[in-house]
Design a binder for these strands. Structure first.
Length: 581
RNA sequence: GCGCCGAUGGUCUAGUGGCUAUGACUGGGGCCUUCCAAGCCCUAAACCCGGGUUCGAAUCCCGGUUGGCGCACCA
């Protein structure tokens, strides 16, 4: 059994992850989060929220998981998030149509479906499997389709990323942030991709959770006021150049910026923040690296992109976060499709005096002369140079028709005007987190099997432990009466209530022997166990047992909720929680 | 989508055509005055789905679902 198998087996058995629809045989690419899994996932999301929403101030929004067609036309997903497939009419096998013709034409992946069909027909391309005739090329789009409304309805798609909802709300967001850059919005939610063949458990899902921030910044100023915070943070960097050599470099973010490895401060800051987040939820620092996209793998609109990758036992390095400078690509696309200017007005520090050549067509003369074409004529005149406008008869071409305009129908001059600002289209820096993959990594990096001496001095037995960071543990304290007897159950129930009131996640467990219950709690990563015994009845003290060391201290019931709270959240030293014995 | 290999209680597993389907662990209830899967008693729980062959199928055949691996895919 490799580690993946052990982790998934434990996750299933203990209520972290279950295959969805298991009762009906299951469906690939979908997982249920069980009681402990759901709690763990929420706690990871809550830490993300703390860092990006509360600390960074990028407010969270919520947009629909169903989108209308225009949104994904603009984003490029309708046209580009698909592959051309072509099925054999005889054996039914499906092939990538562009792959079938790539030996015939050099740039097969740039062809339309009609062109592909034509090339297949003209070159008599047959099914590679059975030599049968091939059907028409069609697009297999990786978006789930749905219909909005009854009857024919309107075409809708399940969103393949949460990002588009935030771009679409750009103008509203800009106004909310009082039109000052930089500002950002975040979203934590489900996205959907109809993967052809999802595998690898929770690593590749058809429905998955993303936490994304879209940060709109000034394209002319990509500095970050707080970059000093991470200047000395040492990271495993795997830049494009480092990948050529196959060697990961250990550099501070400051050095990486100085050497120009990372494009700019704002991106570097997000890398620093991502590093902090991943370690806080429990990713091992030595199993974490930041890999730069090589020029040829970067999406065409991105100018620099770094993936946070974590090392996993079975799958090797997997991407868990993508941090990209998407430039103005998304806003420009949505502006073009919606025909709405998506920009922000930025005032100059000082107004500038700008001298420019200004053309003023005299519509009073052009109108009667050219009637319906007058507007087009005026537009054409505005594009001309001084030399051309100075002629007595000005020649222009409108809709491939030569037109002569009398010189007195247009005025022009150099003008100096006062310009106090300009409209700029912000660039977008996007950190995008795959929560499900991070969730799995947290489980795998926390998973440990330890040998402990067996009871009867016969060899060793193994102890399975999830060494969660306290902040993410789905159960924080187990309350255990030593024996299942009324006199011990009573006080234990009271302690349970007391801890719950403090807001701690408590589980009460009185079934089986005490040793069995400690092991059970080790397996789900409970950091502390409180045990009620007969001494409790005499002096109102209980024991607290620490998961990792298996050490115990004895401490009074009075105030125990504060002691445990401090252990959980304030890094209180375990030895100080009571008297060792 | 394709190819190869698998699928038996919650978990791991025995079972190559024939009695009521093997065992361990786990789970639940109880006993137990003392702390790391201890012991004792009781108890629950499985042949992935659908066809076929056969007197008889967990077992053989076909199809599907699902998991793993390889190919392909991963804007």
């Amino acid at each position: 059994m490799d580690k993946y198998e052990q982790v998934i087996e434990l996750a299933k058995r203990r209520g972290f992850l279950w295959n969805s629809f298991e009762l009906y045989g299951g469906t690939a690419g979908f997982y249920d989060y069980g009681p402990l899994g759901c709690t763990l996932k929420r706690r990871i999301e809550q830490i993300w929220r703390d860092m990006f929403v509360i600390q960074e101030g990028f407010m969270e929004i919520e947009t629909p998981t169903v989108g209308i067609e225009s949104v994904f036309v603009a984003s490029g997903h309708v046209a580009g998030f698909s592959d051309p497939l072509c099925e054999c009419k005889v054996c039914g096998e499906a092939f990538r149509a562009d792959h079938l013709v790539e030996k015939i034409v050099p740039v097969a992946d740039a062809l339309s479906n009609e062109e592909l069909d034509r090339i297949i027909r003209e070159n008599h391309v047959k099914c590679p499997e059975c030599e049968g005739e091939l059907g028409e090329t069609y697009e297999f789009n990786l978006m789930f389709k749905t219909r909005i409304g009854p009857g024919a309805g309107r075409q809708g798609y399940m969103r393949p990323e949460t990002a588009q909802g935030m771009f679409v709300d750009f103008l509203r967001l800009a106004r909310f942030y009082r039109e000052k850059l930089p500002f950002g919005a975040t979203q934590i939610g489900k996205s959907y991709r109809n993967e052809i063949s999802p595998r690898q458990g929770v690593i590749r899902l058809r429905e998955f959770t993303q936490a994304e921030a879209e940060i709109f910044i000034d394209p002319n100023d990509k500095s970050h006021p707080n970059i000093g915070r991470f200047a000395d943070t040492v990271l495993n960097l795997y830049s494009g150049a480092a990948q050529e050599k196959g060697e990961i470099e250990r550099l501070t973010l400051g050095e990486a910026l100085e050497k120009g490895i990372i494009a700019h401060e704002f991106l570097a800051y997000q890398i620093g923040l991502t590093n902090l987040f991943l370690q806080r939820v429990g990713v091992s620092p030595d199993m974490l690296r930041f890999r730069q996209h090589k020029k040829d793998e970067m999406a065409h609109y991105a100018m620099d992109c770094w993936d946070a990758e974590v090392s996993t036992d079975r799958f090797g390095w997997i991407e868990v976060v993508g941090i990209a400078d998407r430039t103005d690509y998304d806003l420009c696309s949505h502006a073009a499709v919606s025909r709405t200017e998506l920009s922000i007005y930025r005032e100059y520090p000082k107004p500038r005096m700008v001298t420019r050549f200004c053309v003023k067509p005299d519509m009073g003369k052009l109108g009667p002369l050219f009637k319906g074409k007058a507007k087009a004529v005026a537009e054409a005149l505005k594009a001309l140079s001084r030399e051309e406008l100075e002629k007595e008869d000005i020649r222009i071409n409108v809709d491939s028709e030569d037109i002569i305009v009398p010189g007195d129908a247009v005025e022009f001059a150099e003008e100096t005007v006062r310009v106090s600002g300009e409209n700029i289209v912000p660039h977008v820096v996007e950190p995008s987190f795959g929560i499900d993959r991070i969730f799995y990594t947290v489980l795998e990096h926390a998973f440990d099997v330890e040998a402990v001496p067996a009871k009867e001095d016969i060899g060793e037995e193994s102890r399975i432990i999830l060494r969660f960071r306290n902040e993410v543990s789905p159960v924080q304290v187990a309350v255990l009466p030593l024996l299942t007897r009324e006199e011990l159950i009573g006080p234990a129930r009271k302690i349970e209530a007391r801890l719950r009131e403090k807001g701690l996640l408590v589980s009460y467990d009185d079934s089986g022997t005490i040793g069995r219950r400690y092991r059970r709690n080790d397996e789900i990563g409970t950091p502390y166990s409180v045990t009620v015994d007969y001494e409790t009845l005499e002096d109102n003290t209980v024991t607290i047992r620490e998961r990792d060391s298996m050490k115990q201290v004895r401490t009074p019931i009075e105030g125990i909720e504060d002691v445990l709270y401090d252990l959980m959240y304030r890094g209180r030293d375990f030895e100080s929680a009571g008297t060792a014995f």
